[in-house]
């Protein structure tokens, strides 16, 4: 009797044991952090540092804290922060994105305006602290190589 119980429980346990394990990132990994300074316009809270990896077609973005520091966190722990060449742009805080209801009066006004290409300034008043050239990948000139391990990148917007 005892023997049969033992055999049964062994068989059951064999099937119960699953294939679990911690998430291990694929490929070489990096940590990225740093700071942004701007002597002319201090007050950097919320400004977005956006890294674009053209080869992999992905973006990693981080917002600055009150001291002007940032640290990238991977969106997907399985992928981590892939190493490689990134283009950096520095963009206004997310707060300045207008997320209005489609039925609000302001939204309808802007939709009715029927904008003509070339004549639209898309800047809002809240995001004018960042020089124009840092907002576009073509003009920012910030092409960086993220290497395996710890990376520190500081940016100066007054230059």
């Amino acid at each position: 009797m005892l023997k049969r119980v033992l055999i049964t429980s062994t068989v059951c346990l064999t099937f119960l044991v699953g294939c679990g394990g911690p998430v291990v990132p694929i490929g070489p990994q990096a940590q990225v952090s740093g700071g942004v300074t701007n002597n002319e316009k201090p007050g950097m809270l919320g400004i977005q540092v956006v890294f674009y990896h053209a080869g992999k077609g992905l973006t990693l973005a981080a917002a600055l804290d009150a001291q002007g520091k940032y640290a990238l966190t991977p969106g997907d722990p399985k992928v981590g922060i892939p190493v490689g060449s990134y283009t950096v742009t520095i963009l206004p805080p997310l707060d300045s994105i207008v997320q209005e209801s489609p039925t609000s009066a302001d939204y309808q006004k802007s939709m009715q305006a029927g904008k003509v290409p070339g004549t639209v300034s898309a800047k809002s008043s809240t995001d004018s602290d960042i020089p124009e050239k840092f907002r576009d990948a073509k003009t920012s000139g910030l092409v960086l190589e993220i290497k395996e391990g710890v990376n520190t990148f500081d940016f100066d917007l007054s230059k």
Binding site: Q48, Y52, A54, G55, G57, T87, T89, L91, P92, L94, S96, I97, V98, E100, D106, Y107, S110, M111, K115, P117, V120, S121, A122, K123, S124, D127, R135, D136, A137, K138
Partner: peptide, 26 residues
């Protein structure tokens, strides 16, 4: 979009989304 060794013809790419202010212009 351009990138990774690929470039559109010179007139093939515009900026987008001039709506309502803010970051959409990127």
């Amino acid at each position: 979009t351009d990138g990774d060794g690929f470039t559109n013809a010179s007139d093939g790419l515009s900026n987008c989304c001039g709506c309502c202010g803010g970051q959409q212009a990127t």
